[in-house]
Amino acid sequence: MPGQEVDMDNRDPNSLNGHILVNFEDVFGEPEGVRSMDCVWKNSYSCFECGKNLCYKLLTFLCGLCIALEWGCEFAMLTYSHVWCWTPCLRDFSITMGCAQKFFQSCLSCCVGPCCEAIGKIFSQVKIQKS
């Protein structure tokens, strides 16, 4: 929206991607009794974080703008098709079927209704007794 600022601190306010929150501790864990050297563990953490952040930043730098533009166009086309095609088509269908519903309802009321009433009156006279 024009004039709307982007929140540079909270970049996922709707928690769309909470499922891909991955930290070192979510991937690696050494159980009791099996330990690498402390320097290996600390440097592994640093390498993991550096690789993850560097790769993500490089990919977003190279592809982020193009992908954002493509998704913007995709959602624009989706909105366009709903506003100009699907909603009017559904409204037309709803109006047409409403008319058809009234027609068939009248036919059923005239033709089937009296038969059902007559059968109902016949069976309403049936009395069941337990002996």
Results as ranks from 00 to 15, higher is better:
V6P: 00
L65C: 08
L69G: 04
L69S: 12
A76M: 09
E70A: 12
D9H: 13
T87K: 11
K102C: 06
V83L: 10
I119F: 10
L58R: 05
F93M: 13
R35G: 02
T87I: 15
L78S: 05
S131C: 09
D26K: 08
L58Y: 06
L16Y: 10
I95H: 06
C66N: 13
K102M: 11
S36T: 10
I119K: 05
Q4F: 08
I119Q: 06
G64P: 00
S124D: 09
V40I: 14
P13R: 01
E117I: 03
F61S: 05
A118D: 11
V83M: 08
C107H: 08
C111P: 00
G98H: 00
E74Y: 14
A68F: 05
V6L: 14
C89P: 00
A100F: 10
T60A: 02
E5S: 15
M77Q: 09
C107F: 12
Y56D: 09
P2V: 06
G33H: 01
I67N: 02
E117F: 05
C50R: 15
C111A: 09
W84N: 14
V34H: 10
C63R: 10
S15A: 15
M8K: 13
A100Q: 11
F48L: 02
F123Y: 14
Q101I: 07
E70T: 13
A76K: 12
N14S: 10
D26V: 01
L54R: 07
D26E: 07
L16M: 09
M37P: 00
D12M: 04
R11H: 02
D7R: 06
G120K: 09
K130P: 00
M1G: 12
L69H: 07
W84G: 04
C47M: 13
R91C: 08
G120S: 12
N17W: 15
V6E: 10
Q129T: 04
C39W: 15
E32P: 00
G72V: 02
F24S: 01
G113Q: 03
V40E: 06
N10P: 01
G120F: 03
G29L: 07
Q125T: 05
L21S: 15
T79V: 06
P2Y: 08
G18P: 01
H82Q: 11
F123W: 08
S36Y: 11
G33C: 02
C55P: 00
L54T: 15
K127Y: 01
G33Q: 04
Y45F: 13
P31A: 02
Q125A: 05
G18T: 03
C116P: 00
N23A: 14
H19M: 07
S124W: 02
G113I: 07
C39S: 12
E32V: 01
L62H: 03
V27H: 02
V126T: 03
D38R: 07
